[in-house]
Design a protein around this nucleic acid. Structure first.
Lengths: 345, 345
DNA sequence: TTGTAGGCGTTATCAT
DNA sequence: ATGATAACGCCTACAA
């Protein structure tokens, strides 16, 4: 049924030469007569010859494929990262094998297994929310597999991490709210086990401290799921139950922030007059809603691109893993829109 | 540096048996003593043996990998499809190699090439906006490569297509607008070469006809890019230049529809009182904006899942390609929200 | 019950 | 300038 691909052998047979000659001719090795070269290339073209990458992989123990392990594909930020990964990988001649864990540890583990089976040259990983222990990664590192972690990065020896400056982003966002005159600022926090959540919370706390505002632990609420529904429910319950109503919300992600906005509006509060809101990630919809949502932009594409470059440099031994700086932190940018501005310019 | 993976040979050597024995023991072939089996498996486990999928691929001329060619990863609908693809592929033991074309024909071509080189077992394709001729796909089909097209499907012989009922979705959306009392309905159309655009436009036209409304060609405007900016600009220019202002917009995608909404608001028109708006795709933000945007939901995850199932069934010869029905059309669902409702229930 | 040999497609090494 | 051979890791007739 499937038409067989022509191989080097086919060309060799037809031309009455050896496969080595064909192989050499095809790659312009020295010591092949121009005549032979010409004939080989001509026939190769005619037969639509295509090198078998699988055979090459076996021969070289290199697959020119990198494995990407990511929590979710349907996620604006991650899809942006994937896009950056794909661009760089493509331009440098690598394939990308993609798996999503759906935030499950066992999928993470089994994805690693199949990727190892497939002799991938390296890993790009953002681990799942369920992952609290990193032995499976440490083991890989010890065995010498190149891994670059991005966004959700572990604190283990020798890991190479690419992340955004979550601390600074959060610090900027909260400082901005404060200078706009908001002071009872809720933090809709992320899952506690993710370093990014911890960093954002730290930025929140430090910004408050920096302005001499006492921290009220009741205003820090974990949003483990990260949907707008969740953000909405949590915000509603806060508005209903806190003795003193808050006047601002800093969401650890945009979905939570939108949820807060919807809940506030439903409660009759005006944004930004009564309540200021800032999100994190700068999803596309931020500029489409009303009021438009201020948000901390993360350079997703760039993160994917940089992580991939570092990984490929290591794979190709352009750099020594020991020489690679172990962490690259990309800048965030606070995009101020209407949801958080109540002072005249 | 990288620690070598244990191979069957390693196990054989250590146990003083032949590699065939090991191979058979590992797969519980009949005719291996329980004792040998036990020892082999034990050592395999100890050495952390993992079959080399590359060697297997070479041997079997099967890679258990499928190639996905998609216009853009950072696109809500496509990312949903990818998610569906990945789920099914994973559950059936296949890898997914992903490339995005960025709507470029040459990337589409070269992606096909590398995938062929990599001996992938089949293709899942949604072609680029630049693709106007399908010879590169026809050739693959002729050579017997399994391909399933999704969403953007070509009209070529033997192609297997999975799509949504764009015609019906558009028909429903426009009928809904009409029954809400809107009659000068703009269609922000998609690129003309995409069948999905044609179908949506056909649905638009038929709905109008069906209600006896004359079609005004000036109200059908192509939005080749598909961003909210583009939609906004086009809408503004329509509002400025049409002699008779339109009272509704049916966007061939949600971005265009949001653009229309923003432009209408900016022009002082109230949505839905003065202008009704319906989009297509049901992006996440539809329910987050105000007024919430009515939209035609496409079953992206399901589309990816179904397309993958069909592809794998063909690959695994569970079905004969000839027996496969050549087109699967999935139902859309019109989600009516606030942007298009001005009559009391 | 186990072993031997050959081959999947390619290329590096060592002849000739 | 070209050929023969072996090897990458695995599987499978065929042999013993």
């Amino acid at each position: 049924m499937k038409i067989e691909q022509a191989t080097i052998k086919d060309i060799a047979r037809e031309l009455n030469v050896s496969s080595s000659t064909v192989s050499r001719a095809l790659k312009d090795y020295p010591g092949i007569s121009d005549e032979t070269k010409r004939k080989v290339k001509e026939l190769a073209k005619k037969l639509n010859y295509r090198p078998n990458a699988i055979a090459l992989s076996l021969r070289k123990s290199r697959s020119f494929t990198i494995g990407v392990i990511i929590p979710e594909v349907v996620h604006f930020f991650f899809s942006t990262v994937i896009s950056g990964i794909e661009e760089v990988a493509y331009s440098r001649g690598y394939n990308v094998i993609l798996t999503q864990t759906n935030e499950k540890l066992d999928r993470e583990q089994s994805s690693i297994d199949t990727m190892l089976s497939n002799q991938i040259d390296g890993f790009l990983v953002s681990y799942s929310k369920e992952t609290k222990d990193f032995n499976h990664f440490s083991r890989l590192l010890d065995q010498g597999y190149p891994i670059v972690f991005f966004d959700r990065v572990p604190e283990i020896p020798n890991a190479i991490n690419v992340m955004v400056d979550d601390y600074q982003g959060a610090f900027d966002a909260v400082s901005h709210l404060i200078t706009q005159g908001y002071s009872r600022i809720v933090h809709l926090a992320g899952p506690k086990n993710l370093k990014i959540s911890q960093e954002r919370e730290r930025g929140y706390r430090d910004a408050l401290k920096n302005y001499g505002i006492a921290i009220d632990e009741d205003l820090i609420v974990e949003c483990p799921i990260g949907t707008s529904d969740e953000g909405q429910k949590i915000t509603k319950s806060l508005l209903d139950n806190l003795k003193q109503t808050p006047d601002a919300f800093f969401g650890n992600n945009d979905m939570a922030a939108v949820g807060a906005m919807l809940a506030c509006k439903a409660a009759g509060l005006r944004v930004p007059e009564d309540v200021g809101i800032v999100g994190f990630s700068n999803w596309q919809f931020c500029s489409m809603i009303e009021p438009s949502l201020s948000s901390v932009a993360q350079p997703g594409f760039n993160m994917g691109a940089k992580a991939t470059e570092m990984l490929l440099d290591i794979i190709e031994k352009k750099v020594n893993p020991e020489e690679v700086k172990e962490a690259l932190t990309l800048e965030t940018e606070l995009l101020v829109r209407k949801s958080s501005v109540r002072l005249k310019g």
